[in-house]
Amino acid sequence: MSGPLYEETTNMTDPQNSTPSNQPPAYQAPAYASAPPASPAAGSGPIPGRTMGIVAFVLSFFAQLIGLILGIIALVQSRKAGHKNGFALAAIIISVVLGIVGIIVGIVVFSLFMNASTDIYQQYLDNCSTGGSGYIEYMGEQIPCEQVDQGQLD
């Protein structure tokens, strides 16, 4: 087998042969783009004020004044470092809203209590003096004037 077919096949597999062959080039891996650089926030450490913002957020539900103060401090620290702090902002908003609601509820409860105590005092003056019925009505019950401690009404 010394014909041209034999020579052609030996040329294709013989690494010593430097003559070009009719073989396609070997497979090469496609070139991929390099990875993007790491963001500076990933390795730059903790964000200033972030932990305090979370603490302020939790406290804003229970102790509004403390939550408000810590939220403002955390927000200022984060802004100075050039970061956003959603927890601190939420703590400020929640503290203010719940504080206002608490003040309104306090005023309403105080006024209801004052009206009730004024009403009992007025009943005492009207009914326990000479010529009165001798009873005070409190929460649907009639209480004799003798059982009422006068020192608590003054």
Score class of each variant (00 low, 15 high):
residue 5 L to A: 11
residue 6 Y to A: 09
residue 7 E to R: 10
residue 7 E to L: 10
residue 9 T to N: 06
residue 10 T to H: 04
residue 14 D to A: 01
residue 18 S to T: 06
residue 22 N to R: 04
residue 23 Q to E: 10
residue 24 P to I: 08
residue 28 Q to L: 08
residue 28 Q to A: 14
residue 29 A to Y: 11
residue 30 P to I: 04
residue 30 P to K: 06
residue 35 A to T: 11
residue 38 A to P: 07
residue 39 S to P: 03
residue 45 G to K: 13
residue 49 G to I: 02
residue 50 R to I: 06
residue 51 T to A: 12
residue 53 G to T: 00
residue 53 G to Q: 05
residue 58 V to T: 12
residue 58 V to N: 11
residue 58 V to L: 14
residue 60 S to V: 09
residue 65 L to D: 15
residue 66 I to D: 03
residue 66 I to Q: 00
residue 66 I to V: 15
residue 67 G to T: 10
residue 69 I to T: 13
residue 71 G to M: 09
residue 71 G to C: 06
residue 80 K to W: 01
residue 87 F to V: 01
residue 89 L to S: 10
residue 93 I to A: 11
residue 100 I to Q: 10
residue 100 I to S: 11
residue 102 G to Y: 02
residue 103 I to V: 14
residue 104 I to E: 13
residue 105 V to K: 14
residue 106 G to F: 03
residue 108 V to S: 07
residue 111 S to L: 10
residue 113 F to M: 09
residue 118 T to Y: 00
residue 119 D to R: 11
residue 129 S to A: 13
residue 130 T to K: 13
residue 131 G to I: 12
residue 131 G to C: 15
residue 132 G to L: 08
residue 134 G to C: 10
residue 142 Q to I: 01
residue 142 Q to D: 15
residue 144 P to D: 12
residue 144 P to F: 03
residue 145 C to N: 12
residue 145 C to G: 15
residue 146 E to S: 12
residue 146 E to F: 04
residue 147 Q to A: 12
residue 150 Q to E: 07
residue 150 Q to R: 15
residue 151 G to H: 07
